[in-house]
Design a protein around this nucleic acid. Sequence first.
DNA 1: GTTGAAAAGTGCTGCGA
DNA 2: TCGCAGCACTTTTCAAC
Lengths: 158, 158
Amino acid sequence: MPHKKAQNLEIDNLDIQILSILMNNATTPYTEIAKELIVSGGTIHVRMKKLEEMGVIKGASLEVDPQKLGFDITAFLGIYLEKGSQYNEAVKRLKEVKEIVELYYTTGSWSIFAKIVCHDTTHLREVLNERIQSVPGIQRTETFISLEESVKRQISLD
Amino acid sequence: MPHKKAQNLEIDNLDIQILSILMNNATTPYTEIAKELIVSGGTIHVRMKKLEEMGVIKGASLEVDPQKLGFDITAFLGIYLEKGSQYNEAVKRLKEVKEIVELYYTTGSWSIFAKIVCHDTTHLREVLNERIQSVPGIQRTETFISLEESVKRQISLD
DNA sequence: GTTGAAAAGTGCTGCGA
DNA sequence: TCGCAGCACTTTTCAAC
């Protein structure tokens, strides 16, 4: 019977070490990683290709400072739905709200939990009143404003 | 009187367009960005250097799939402090808990709001009971477990 | 400030061990 | 499966506009 080319699809210690380095700084050259882990540059390349094929690596993104770009307010939203079954429809509508940067389906008091980034309080009020509260099925929301971001990092693989 | 070399420290439309492209895919070559925005590769380089010096760009990081690395649980924690003045000391201790990936000082019911990533429920219980509840000043916590991450993206600069 | 091209460094591929 | 060496591509620099 036909089958795919045999591949090693396990994640070993070397893979973890490569990921740890690149999660902190995605621009680290392969040659530098190779030197640090005492393997060849080609090996790093092969491992990275494997991790990408496995879907472990989803991509690389530039981290920016929202405040320096005029986004002064980060807030969290607990959203109550009239019925839990309205989740999918509500998410579809909420995805169109560009200010929502994260959205989760959670256990506990709320059905939906969201993170939102706005320019100022006027902008926040407009997004809340006109674009979120108007979504069908949303009963009410609770807002928590972040006064300080003290930790923002990736998971530690050690 | 002595003064620094004059520099244009304003962010114009071209900067915003460059950032928009790289925020979605940090590995886009400068030459490709240049072609798309109809400027030279050198210009992209100069702008990026300016944005880095201004602190607008904080770095580039590799995005991984936590589940594929054995991290199955994402949870949110609302933390009550005995006194608000204990915030700094508590954050210092909580920073040592590697499972905490985000931590905010927020308005509303809780003093601290945190995002936490764990392997499984046993791991989550251990982190909560043994490493978070034991921090001086922490009165009690409320836990919300994420059952689905529906949105995870960067702010839109348009 | 921007351009275009040259110089330096990095990523990628195939052969050999 | 890994390492080495050559080729292709990207980043970086710089004189000129």
